[in-house]
């Protein structure tokens, strides 16, 4: 589900985000073993950068090589307790994703995920970020998907609440005082991620007949139109207002607290105003200005 927030390439301002990404990757490796570095996501990196910016702590760099970049030394954020909590959150989300895939997939893939869930590795044994409240929300989301609820708002709001509460618990663990709007921002960020996921998986879900709230929200389109491609195009055209409104909503909430971000502001500004719209346009099959120049990270 994660991985929708990708920074715009060649943007000279996003060195902080890259350093944060590398720092989180290294923290995952040290805390949960090398295999867990595969769980790294851009979305959690953005959350970490946000927590860091609002904590008022200094951003310290070091230059290091890694498996992916063995020759050139890259700027890496020196990990601190914020990165450690973010690594715990990443592992928690990945474990939930694996549990979700075990329920959804069949045959070989199901066995693969079951095996992955039983590997006696460090990331599988220890769960340092664990809250019953979050587990309940994941269970609620799972129940709604099982019942094939047609309201995408209800499901995406549930995922938004998961991200909002994650931020709340993480800030409590780290003793950071966040502005009130930050929780609201992470709620709508989660809502955007869930909605983008539903849009992107629409074609595959229609072909394999997997559950997708957009299918059940647009029953009349599917029952009246024949070809899958045509159905996908019609549903995307009909429902794209949600994504545009979400982008607008996120930008508005962000504008309420961006003054508190200090030196990190221009970096996060770029992600909100360029990267998020670029991802929305990509999922809708339209081209944004960034994509026309081919500068989006893939």
């Amino acid at each position: 589900m994660f991985g929708y927030i990708r920074p715009v390439r060649n943007d000279c301002e996003n060195y902080l985000f890259k350093a944060q990404y590398c720092g989180l990757c290294k923290t995952l490796g040290k805390r949960y073993g090398q295999f867990s570095r595969l769980f790294l996501s851009y979305d959690i990196s953005l959350l970490t950068l946000l927590w860091h910016a609002l904590s008022g702590k200094n951003f310290v760099y070091k230059y290091e090589t890694c498996i992916m970049h063995p020759v050139n030394k890259r700027r890496v954020k020196r990990p601190n307790e914020i990165d450690q909590t973010a690594a715990d959150v990443s592992v928690y989300f990945v474990k939930k994703k694996i549990e979700d895939n075990i329920r959804d997939e069949r045959w070989f893939k199901k066995l693969l995920y079951q095996g992955l869930n039983k590997i006696p590795m460090k990331w599988n044994r220890e769960t340092l970020f664990k809250y019953d409240d979050l587990d309940n929300l994941f269970y609620q989301l799972e129940r709604m998907e099982e019942l094939k609820k047609p309201e995408i708002d209800e499901l995406s709001n549930c995922f938004g609440t998961i991200l909002k509460k994650t931020t709340r618990y993480a800030s409590r663990q780290l003793y950071i005082k966040l502005p009130d709007e930050t929780e609201q921002f992470t709620f709508f960020l989660g809502k955007l991620i869930y909605t983008l996921d539903a849009f992107e998986d629409l074609e595959r879900d229609l072909k394999k007949w997997h559950y997708n709230p957009l299918i059940f929200e647009n029953k009349e389109v599917i029952l009246s139109v024949g070809k899958t491609e045509e159905v996908v195009k019609k549903i995307k055209d009909k429902e794209k207002w949600r994504l545009y409104l979400l982008l607008d909503h996120l930008e508005y909430i962000y504008s309420l607290f961006n003054d508190c971000l200090g030196v990190y502001r221009s970096e996060i500004d770029g992600i909100i105003s360029k990267s998020l719209p670029a991802m929305v346009y990509r999922v809708l099959g339209q081209k944004s200005n960034c994509q026309k120049k081919g500068v989006l990270h893939e």
Partner: peptide, 12 residues
């Protein structure tokens, strides 16, 4: 503004 996706920017 809702269907065109600029409800919040206009209000702001």
């Amino acid at each position: 503004q809702t269907v065109n996706g600029y409800f919040f920017s206009r209000r702001a």
